[in-house]
Amino acid sequence: MKFGVLRFPGSCDDVDALLAARRVGDAELLWHGERDLKGADAIVVPGGFSYGDYLRAGSIARFSPVMESVIAFAGDGGLVLGICNGFQVLCEAKLLPGALLPNSNLRFTFRQVELEVVQEQTAFTCACGLDGPSPVVLSIPAKHSWGRYYADEQTLADMEGRGQVLLRYAPGHNFNGSSNDIAGVSNERGNVFGLMPHPEHAVDELTGSKDGLCIFASMCLAVEAARV
């Protein structure tokens, strides 16, 4: 199982994502100007400030050469995880519904948040509840200025009905004002997932939590299950 972790000019969480992925499988960085995904079984679009966040977060990265390949990869059913700026890129690329808007408190906010795993049987969450009580609550850091998830009422209702909301901020943890307390959503097919909090920063007890590791472990399980 090999992860490909994208690197744009302005990415800053690419190395953490690479190291997190390497705890559960192989991983390699993929430069934004290349189209070759180098045989990756799953793609991680990491956090940071791709292309300086100019215009809107993610709006320019979405047109980079590597994203053309990622869009085709997702179209073929490949797993794509977008974290923070990566989530914004995937929304701009229309791989995920909705958009990310400035936090309702207008501040860059960095805090540990609790996330409820709403759907436990998905390619991105299936390892999260394996050795613990249900419902699963993950403690993961979030750090962003533009993290208010927004989609119109009809889209939200459709997503909720189809089980596309995988993670929700626990009560009291929705600091950015996201609709329906949404922290992470998937596409309709279930192979593309984006979240604002950073699972790659929570992979070792040394930094307070390793709850984020289960997102990467889930992707491994899903890729290996698809191979059998």
């Binding site: 215009l55 320019i60 047109f63 808007l101 989609a151």
Partner: peptide, 8 residues
Amino acid sequence: KLLANPLV
């Protein structure tokens, strides 16, 4: 395509 995000 780029300058605005018509969703929002």
